[in-house]
Amino acid sequence: MESTTPAAAEALGQAAARPPRDAVIEARGAARHYGAVRAVDGVDLAVARGEVFGLIGHNGAGKSTLFRMMLGLVPPSAGEIRIAGAAVGGRDFRAVRRRIGYLPENVVLYDNLTGLETLHFFARLKGVPAAGCGALLDRVGLTHAAARRVREYSKGMRQRLGFAQALLGRPQILFLDEPTTGLDPEAIREFYLILRGLRAEGVTVVITSHILAEIQERVDRLAIMAAGRVQALGTVQELREQMDLPLWFEVRVADADFAAVRDALGSLPVAAIEARDGHVAVQVRREAKMAVFAALATLGDRVLDLSVREPSLEDVFFGFSD
């Protein structure tokens, strides 16, 4: 059985004092095997304090298992995960758990409790004063439903209540599994506003999402998982560069002069060039980007408009996970 020692709590304090790039979450060779199935197959990761870290992958890629391993819900078959210096599931981990907020995917709360009672219950388990529960409900916009039973809540309201639960006791580390499922666009915006505020306070966030476009603007770094392994790790920009996906230039020239653009690009290694309604689309490799700019500049004011489209996280994701 775990016992409470102040050591882990101190470790959290130390983490706060360390340089910002120091790791709060560290996985070394973490693996989880179910018989012959290698759900998580040797993952090395380090998440820095105050970082918003995205974990993406297809269903069955191993991200949920890794998530559950980080929370101590599934013991690793091999390797080790440490959070705030304490081994997950070890003796000091109970104190760390008090500083962790967790929002499970499709969070299930107790139908027979009201919103406020739900927060009171989890607050007691976390050893947090019940007094702050009302303010948390307000923060996620559920004050009006505080006295209503969760049974009557919509999917989005449950998700908000689950998020409020995760924020109990001002956690220093947040694990959010598909946190915006079931939220309407307005609520998604509010959710990310809260997240931004937490990040500013130095809270470390690990987040998964299926909606890649949503996550790519909001994470500092991310890991792409497939077949139980981290296939790629870095900022969205770094991943794009690693993947070396081509860029698209969209050029609008006077008189829609396709030939002028083609001639200007001359012998540059262009992957594709095509005329699309009113503009010319040019696909080039990343390393040719500046050369293409220079070539297009020779057209002078004949260029009416120019935009460069980076590959989306989706393109990167499919590149790594396929």
């Binding site: 059985m1 101590g72 109970r94 104190a95 758990r97 967790y102 969070v107």
Partner: peptide
């Protein structure tokens, strides 16, 4: 089965408790 066990176990509580 309802899916509420993970959240409970993520709290600072042991399985015995």
């Amino acid at each position: 089965e309802r899916g509420s066990l993970d959240l409970l176990l993520s709290m600072p509580i042991t399985r015995f408790e």
